[in-house]
Simulated assay, not measured.
Amino acid sequence: MSDLFIAAGGGGDPIGTAITAIAMSARLTTAGPGGAHGTAGPDLPVVATYSWERPEVDPTPGPLGVRDFTGLLDRPEGHVLTPAARAVAPAGSTLPRLAADLPVRLVLLDPYEGLAGLAARIRRLAEACGPGRVRIVDVGGDILTHGDEDTLCSPLVDALVLAACTLADVDATVHIAGPGTDGEIPQDVLLDRLDRLAGTDDRSAPTPGHAQAAYRALAWHPSEASALFAAAVLGVRGTVRTVGRAIPLTDASAYVRNTGLEAAVAENPVARGLLESRPRTVDEAADLSAQLTGIHEIARERRPTAPPTPSTAPFPADAHRARERIRAQAGDVSHVTSRFATRALGLPWQRIPEVRTLLGDDGPVHALH
């Protein structure tokens, strides 16, 4: 082992981080849609990640910690997720299945030890992985938030990683995979920041083969940012309708842009605030983030909502009717995500594989024209 990769955003970020890690590690073996995947040699890239997912996946508020899983493997590099791991009900997590379908070793980050505890955990992870660097990967780029963007949704988790890596004093760089694909900072704004911080030459481009290593995960996972990043790497261009908004896919969407840890912290007011206050709990960190950005991610998930009800929508009879229903809700765009497509059809995200089969699409997003 060498480099440690950290999926800074949780949710579906392990998928985009895996693509980035495989590209950087140069260990990919040939893999096609629905085919075999893996990396050469006995070692897999190590990807550390939170388990903090949208409420339709995990109905409990906030991230999950080690205490919320059974079946984790306690290894020198940390608490390793395997296909046999399970989130303790009523919590839910896609990480065990991702552990089966991504050619990386997934390690759980537990933010419930406070900022100092998270920093200590990352330091031990980096030491266990060997002499390489810590590579913080954020799919989309909200890790470079200024905290005042109208479309910002989730500033806390990325800021926690920046602050913890700074406190841990590890040799770290920040990688933005698919700038703008999370829809939280407009792509043109984000690219201006990256050009100022890193320069236009500080970039890399994963190949379609690297993206294909994540096909098994993308075939069922509701991630949208990682799906857009993979689609861009595979050559898709146009406007993609996600559940939240329409997002452009450009040549820039297919790149991984790099900057330094110190430069990223200087951009991110939440990361700086965390380093000043050293919160001892996740709730304290969330309170601080809310003071600085007006977004309290845990309180948002604690608000009472109507419990989800099983969908009674009939499965579409044919692909033509399904596309017409999807197109009617998508508007004037060229593509939609699998999550948007299932929602437009009145179906839960768990039926993504069936919808993909119906539409005859094996790529990360679905073409409408």
Rank of each mutant, 00 (worst) to 15 (best):
V189C: 09
T207A: 09
T166R: 15
A7Q: 06
T259I: 00
P90K: 00
T342M: 03
P83E: 12
A31R: 03
Y50A: 06
G65V: 00
A227N: 09
L359M: 14
R216N: 08
A164T: 08
L347V: 06
A286R: 04
A205H: 10
P96N: 04
E127L: 15
S51F: 05
G141A: 08
L194M: 12
A172H: 02
A231Q: 03
D182A: 03
G140Y: 10
I19F: 00
A7R: 01
T29S: 12
Q329L: 15
A313H: 09
L44S: 12
N258Y: 01
V243C: 12
L197K: 15
A26R: 13
A266N: 09
L234C: 14
V240I: 12
V107E: 10
T207F: 01
R303D: 07
L106R: 02
V107C: 08
L292K: 02
G9C: 10
V270M: 05
D251R: 10
G16T: 10
D283F: 14
L345A: 09
I326E: 14
H37W: 13
R193W: 05
V80S: 05
A213C: 10
L292I: 12
R121I: 05
G78Y: 01
C153Y: 13
A84P: 04
G180P: 00
L358Q: 11
G12L: 04
A205I: 10
P96K: 00
E53D: 13
V336Y: 05
V365H: 01
R257I: 01
G273R: 07
S338W: 12
E354K: 00
E56N: 08
A341C: 08
G363P: 03
P155L: 03
R105H: 10
V355P: 11
T82P: 02
D3N: 11
L274C: 11
D58G: 03
L125E: 15
T166N: 15
I176D: 01
G294N: 09
T207S: 13
T207G: 07
L191M: 13
L125W: 02
A246V: 13
D142P: 11
L106A: 08
R278N: 14
T145Y: 04
P155E: 02
A230N: 06
D169E: 15
N268T: 04
G16R: 02
D361V: 13
E56G: 04
A120I: 09
L109Q: 14
L106F: 09
A164F: 09
A23C: 11
D110K: 15
A23F: 03
V134C: 10
G346R: 07
A40F: 12
V355G: 14
P316K: 03
A21G: 01
L249R: 02
T20R: 00
T82W: 06
